[in-house]
Simulated assay, not measured.
Amino acid sequence: MFLFRRSSLGSNPRLRALRALYSNFIAQNPPEARARRLLREWLSPEQRVQFDAQGHFDVTGSHTGRRYRIRQGTMRNVLEIDEQGQAKMGWCFVPARALAAGDVMLAQKIALETDEMAVLSLANKFPPKLL
Rank of each mutant, 00 (worst) to 15 (best):
A33D: 13
Q50P: 11
L130A: 09
E83M: 06
T74L: 05
P30I: 00
D52R: 11
I110W: 04
F93D: 10
A101G: 03
A33Y: 01
A118T: 14
L15P: 04
R19S: 03
D103K: 01
L21D: 07
E32K: 07
I26N: 15
S11P: 12
K129A: 10
A35Q: 04
Q86P: 00
E32Q: 15
H56T: 13
A17Q: 15
G85I: 01
Q54P: 01
L131V: 05
R40L: 15
K129D: 12
I26F: 12
P31R: 03
V94A: 14
F25G: 07
G73L: 03
A107G: 10
L39R: 04
K88D: 03
R6S: 12
G90E: 11
K129H: 10
A123K: 13
A100S: 12
M117Y: 09
D103S: 14
L18W: 14
R40T: 00
D103P: 00
S7K: 02
F25K: 13
L79V: 02
F57I: 11
G73F: 01
K109H: 03
M117I: 14
K129P: 04
H56L: 14
Q54T: 09
R36M: 02
I81G: 06
N124D: 07
A96V: 03
R16L: 14
S62T: 05
L79G: 08
A118G: 15
G73Y: 03
Q47A: 01
R71S: 15
S44V: 06
R6F: 06
M89N: 09
N12M: 02
I81W: 13
P30T: 04
L79Y: 14
A33F: 02
L43C: 04
A17R: 13
L39M: 09
N77K: 03
D103V: 00
R14G: 15
L15M: 15
Q50F: 07
T60C: 14
L38F: 00
A35M: 05
A33G: 02
I26S: 15
L3C: 11
G90I: 02
R48M: 10
I70S: 08
G102E: 02
E46G: 00
M89F: 03
L39S: 06
K129T: 11
V49L: 10
A33E: 06
L106D: 06
A87E: 09
D58P: 00
L120H: 10
A17F: 11
D82W: 14
Q72A: 15
A101K: 07
